[in-house]
């Protein structure tokens, strides 16, 4: 019952954040700020993670493809597929649920606790439009982060595999093999859905939180819990719909 109530409240929150808009130049300013905080600030950690995980994936692929009858190009092929299909869009999004998500929940939650949101509402400002809408828009650039992740994951795979002695030509040939552009489409559809979840679910947890400074931390934890679960379930549903 409570759960259904919260789902309703969540969709209402999204509806309100798109209505009664603040002045345009104010929103532009907010959007640029959010692009910086949510997207640009995430590139570094995503790059490091992607590069090394790509390396690990390709080494593990090489390990399971040691049979001399199997072509070494399969290593590049398999690394590319797992990075594009799953690792970059889903795994990185779960990590972002921790990084971006807890940042959003704690910053909005602090504003709630210190009555800054009340202050906005009293001024006659639609606080959801001012705080949440720019985050949704900024996160439209999130696929850009995932593109970097895909690229660096594959490059990481290449470097790691070269160090183990497999000729890099085979790997490069592999990553060009049987290229299915639909897989990339699928991956970006997922990414866009996740970017919406990453912007809105943590906002919901921050905006409607109750209590004091201590509860901001609890709300962030709750927010990570729900954001990651929702991402994993949606991942399953989208995969079922688009690939099965």
């Amino acid at each position: 019952m409570n759960f259904l109530h919260d789902i309703g409240k969540y969709f209402l929150m999204i509806k309100i954040s798109f209505s009664k808009s603040c002045k345009r130049e104010i929103l532009y300013k907010q959007i640029f700020k959010e692009i910086n905080d949510l997207v640009l600030d995430s590139i570094q950690i995503v790059s490091i993670l992607s590069f090394f995980i790509g390396g690990v994936v390709s080494i593990q692929m090489a390990l399971s493809l040691e049979n001399p009858l199997l072509s070494k190009t399969l290593i590049g092929y398999a690394t590319r597929e797992s990075v594009i299909l799953e690792f970059a869009p889903t795994f990185i999004s779960i990590i972002m649920a921790g990084k971006v998500g807890s940042y959003i929940t704690s910053s909005i939650g602090t504003m709630r606790v210190t009555e800054q949101i009340d202050a906005l509402e009293v001024m006659g400002i639609n606080s959801l439009n001012y705080l949440v809408f720019p985050k949704i828009i900024a996160m439209l650039l999130y696929p850009f982060v995932i593109t970097i992740s895909m690229f660096l994951g594959i490059v990481g795979g290449l470097l790691a595999i070269s160090l183990t002695g497999v000729p890099s030509e085979a790997y490069i040939q592999g990553i060009q093999m049987d290229f299915e552009s639909y897989h990339v489409t699928y991956s970006y559809i997922k990414t866009l859905v996740f970017s919406f979840v990453l912007a809105t679910v943590p906002s919901f947890h921050g905006y409607y939180m109750k209590g004091g400074a201590l509860d901001v931390g609890k709300a962030s934890t709750q927010s990570f819990y729900w954001t990651s679960i929702i991402i994993i379930i949606l991942n399953y549903i989208i995969t079922q719909l688009l690939l099965a």
């Binding site: 800054q116 009340d118 001024m123 006659g124």
Partner: peptide, 16 residues
């Protein structure tokens, strides 16, 4: 009506 109101909050509620 709310645009005709000003409010000073107990904890100031300044934008930090």
């Amino acid at each position: 009506i709310s645009r005709q109101m000003g409010m000073v909050f107990q904890g100031s509620a300044l934008f930090d």
